[in-house]
Nucleic acid binder design. Structure first.
Lengths: 343, 343
DNA sequence: CTGAAAGCGCTTACAG
DNA sequence: CTGAAAGCGCTTACAG
């Protein structure tokens, strides 16, 4: 009680009349400690509000009980808000960490600069979760380097064969397929796809491939003129849609690669005096909270962020535990709302 | 290179032909190391991808270079999303931490359970940032305990006299005052206030006090029938508005204590066949991203999250550095959009 | 300018 | 069941 500063296990040892290692054993629940002694030690520890020094114990155990979340943004993204989808991922990752008794270090990165991925090198974290879309080609080398360095990491994103490391991602192909099929069932035939469709953005590319597959199943061919690049921001979606309309290409639906793109596109349609869904049906991807609030409410593909967070954390912990771990894709769910429902 | 596992400062010492302390001095930029020796050491460290072990150095320095963000939610809140306002705070806090070379531990808490505030006790963090609204009376005792334990912490929220610890918050009184004045200038006279107005929710209470002050300046008295409790969710705002309408109280404006409440209220108004702003003007508070996207766009009070994050981090670091630190309130800005503009 | 020594607080073989 | 000893990797007075 009269100890200055924080109590240590040695302080407790003195008060309990035992050696310091015995205190350590008692606190860690070792079975080879006399029950009475243990009780006495635990009581004193509680009275002193003693907490094991994590620096000392991590140093000794070579294990931090901490994971790091590296969130990186595309530098082409405007400074505004982060994709709300990732907020929901952050929430589920935090909860999954708590469930597994892990603490979570969070860091926002710029893709442009070198990733500050040395949390593990400095033993501050046992592994890293990578979150954020960007140019995949740019990040691939870095991922490769992480693998070579033996860094433990999992990333959120398309799980494609031959990728460096472990990826957890939604079944983007299925999502693109299902939502396009839905549009076709609504009678749409001139469906524009807004979003990058190159290997630089594998998630979007997979959604586009699913889109094309669905078209083909209905005997339709994908037209290059109906695909227009966009990144995941409202501004980009709005601009892409304006360009599309300016080209005069006749369309009856927009299949956007993300909800933010879709919402930007709806704004452009409104400005052009077109009604959603009567003149043009619109769909998104992600099911961010905004999707349900927007008017008309947005039909979209829901990603299972809860399962995603759990899988990311569990696989990372398995990796840290030296188990073999595979990439995995997570099923998605079509959510039909007003923006796609025609007569 | 042929060293198994991670390189240590001792490995570098061997390779550089110096003692381990010299390596430590060189890496920390001590001026009393020969320039050539320093260069050699730094080169070798780089080649080995050496990173100082933070557990060892924190243990020795008694300083973790890490802050913890405790985010707590009101248990009465539905499981849905977190108040988007806090996402923006999270972003600015993360950036401020990076700026000050601090790592950030993030943890979501339930108000109901005991705060897991022992990051500092375990020396994992040097101080704590508390973020989240809840019943202030419930948290007050816990804050008091933190102060008694000598925990370094700052909290986001109303900065009121006599509070335990340091608080950084918006000037809620001014915000409530300004937005009400704006409504009055638009000709509104029957203004309902949606949000708690008790000392259990000091931020809302301050907004309400500002609201009342503005009314009085215009020779109007606050009417109890025009205030209705609500917490910061759309659902709560919608319900509060429905109740209000059901009571048949004539109103020409709703001054909501937060954007989410306002958005819920707008939904209730729409369902009741009332037009915003023609029949009822609506205002919010926070300026979350949704506020600008919603239709009609929401007039609101913008909180300066960027400055807030900076202040929270800077004051906490000052506190850790044993400086005297005061609470502070941050100016807010009225943002006029469509939802309040009458003819 | 540099090295030998001590110590941060813990955990775990190793003896008893 | 318990203690004495060693060591995790670093930083910093203390000598030189």
């Amino acid at each position: 009680m009269t100890i200055k500063g924080k109590a240590t296990s040695l302080d407790i040892a003195h008060l309990a009349g035992v050696s310091q290692p015995t205190v350590s054993r008692a606190l860690r629940g070792s079975p080879m400690v006399n029950a009475e002694t243990r009780e006495r030690i635990l009581r004193i520890a509680r009275e002193l509000n003693y907490k094991v020094d994590k620096n000392a114990s991590s140093l000794r155990l070579r294990n931090a009980g901490t994971l790091a979340l590296l969130f990186f943004e595309d530098p082409t993204n405007d400074d505004s808000l982060i994709n709300p989808f990732f907020h929901s991922m952050l929430g589920s990752i935090t909860r999954a960490c708590a469930l597994h008794g892990q603490d979570l270090l969070v860091s926002f990165q710029q893709l442009s600069t070198d990733w500050q991925a040395d949390y593990e090198d400095s033993n501050k974290a046992d592994g890293i979760i990578l979150l954020g879309y960007g140019d995949y080609h740019e990040s691939r080398d870095r991922l490769q380097r992480l693998v070579e360095q033996g860094t433990h990491f999992v990333r959120w994103g398309a799980a494609l064969p031959g990728q460096p490391g472990v990826s957890i991602g939604s079944d983007n192909f299925q999502g693109g397929h299902d939502i396009t099929t839905h549009l076709l069932q609504q009678g749409c035939r001139r469906i524009a796809f807004l979003g990058h469709a190159s290997s630089h953005y594998p998630e979007f590319q997979e959604r586009y491939r699913g889109h094309v597959a669905a078209l083909q199943e209905h005997g339709l061919a994908a037209e290059a003129a109906l695909q227009h690049d966009a990144i995941t921001t409202e501004a980009s979606g709005q601009e892409a849609c304006q360009t599309l309309l300016a080209r005069g290409e006749p369309i009856d639906a927009i299949c956007a690669a993300s909800d933010l793109i879709a919402i930007g596109a709806m704004r452009a349609l409104r400005e052009a005096g077109l009604r959603v869904p009567q003149d043009v049906a619109v769909t998104g991807f992600d099911d961010i909270p905004l999707a349900a609030s927007v008017s008309p409410a947005l039909t979209t593909v829901q990603q299972d962020t809860k399962q995603a967070g759990q899988l990311l954390v569990e696989r990372l912990l398995a990796l840290i535990g030296r188990q073999a771990v595979d990439s995995q894709s997570i099923p998605v769910k079509l959510v039909v709302r007003e923006s796609s429902q025609r007569g």
